[in-house]
Design a protein around this nucleic acid. Structure first.
Lengths: 99, 99
DNA sequence: CGTGTAAGGAATTCTGACACG
DNA sequence: CGTGTAAGGAATTCTGACACG
């Protein structure tokens, strides 16, 4: 079975900004905070998927509710696949930043 | 019901070129010959959908078989979905004129 | 912390034209 | 006809930094 269109990283940040209503600044910041993981073209431009659009909508909603990025990341990390990889490094880093 | 991701015009020509294996020159030419209809950003850059990717793959195959662009266009026009779209467009136009 | 913005540069895309065949 | 290419310009995106709060 082929890869679903939903997960193909083919959309530039400008379109993502339009689709989500978020500014490019916000979108890049959420990446910096490890909430989303776009791919890159050879030249370095970010490429997103429709799944990312949905995720960003989810992130935006939580931000509006006053949640902070590290809290959102923690919540996402409860999913088993990502947890093993990132729990140690990033969660500890997030913890240190709070102090 | 919301619009399927497959039909959203959100992909730049560079990615389309990668996905289809066609050059940008070819893709723009097929547009000139009315085989595909990308949307445009405010700045004028072309935006395509995954459906366009499939259509381009179909066009590429026919071109390899020696078919010419006008033949492909004629063939496309026979397809019911396109006919329906044109019909609907005419009806809409007629309806607008009556108002 | 999360976001806006100005800055300078690099990557991307655009059009119209010339070439070949 | 269909496609390659060089040209010049415009739109898009990138990073790092400063600002505010």
């Amino acid at each position: 079975m082929t890869l679903d269109y939903k997960d193909k990283k083919v959309i530039g940040i400008g379109i993502i900004s339009e689709l989500t209503g978020l500014t490019e600044r916000q979108i890049r910041y959420y990446e910096e905070r490890k909430l989303i993981f776009p791919e890159r073209s050879n030249g370095g431009t970010r490429k997103y998927s429709f799944a990312d659009v949905e995720r960003l909508a989810d992130i935006a909603e939580k931000m509006e509710d006053g949640m902070q990025t590290f809290e959102i990341r923690k919540e996402e990390m409860k999913r088993s696949d990502v947890r093993d990889k990132m729990l140690k490094g990033q969660l500890n880093a997030a913890f240190r930043m709070r102090k």
